[in-house]
């Protein structure tokens, strides 16, 4: 009996994760697409040196960050998949969302500063975990994107 209840709880959490997690992910990707379209005028480079033939008025460090966690379904799906190895698509989409969101936020910060270009962009990922004795480790990661926003001198 106890086993059935336990199994039921796991199945319920899986279902919750699958339904709400999927819906949230689809919504997030839609939002990202929209925001990226709006922010496409802000150019992003990992290049260290801004073009020498252009003059700039101001330089400002801009940062975008986000902490994203897996859902219950992803966790189970990934742990099952890692038994056979190969691509963990559950995590691939999570990383993609996090990184794109961080870049979008960095671009928003740059646009608020009136800049149109960001140079020397660095992207970092840091794992944040929480391990309790009675709980499984939570997978959450922080994504940071930062760079130097430059305002062209010829702009009003």
């Amino acid at each position: 009996m106890e086993l059935i209840i336990q199994f039921g709880v796991i199945a319920f959490l899986l279902l919750l994760g699958l339904v709400f997690g999927r819906a949230a992910e689809a919504r997030h990707f839609r939002e990202l697409k929209q925001k990226e379209l709006i922010l496409r005028q802000v150019l992003v480079f990992s290049e260290k040196h801004p073009p020498a033939d252009q003059e700039f008025r101001g330089a400002k460090l801009v940062v975008g960050s986000v902490v994203i966690a897996e859902d219950y379904f992803k966790r189970i799906a990934a742990s099952l998949k890692s038994l056979v190895g190969g691509r963990l698509t559950a995590y691939e989409s999570l990383m993609d969302r996090g990184r794109r969101e961080a870049i979008v936020r960095m671009k928003q910060a740059a646009r608020e500063a009136g800049a149109s270009m960001i140079f020397n962009v660095r992207i970092e990922t840091a794992r944040l975990s929480e391990s309790d004795s009675n709980r499984q480790a939570l997978f959450a990661a922080e994504f940071i994107a930062y760079g130097t926003a430059l305002v062209p001198a010829n702009r009003p």
Partner: peptide, 13 residues
């Protein structure tokens, strides 16, 4: 709680 449905953890951000 958020860990069940996933997504952004705004408090942590």
């Amino acid at each position: 709680l958020k860990n069940i449905v996933g997504g952004e953890l705004k408090a942590y951000t």
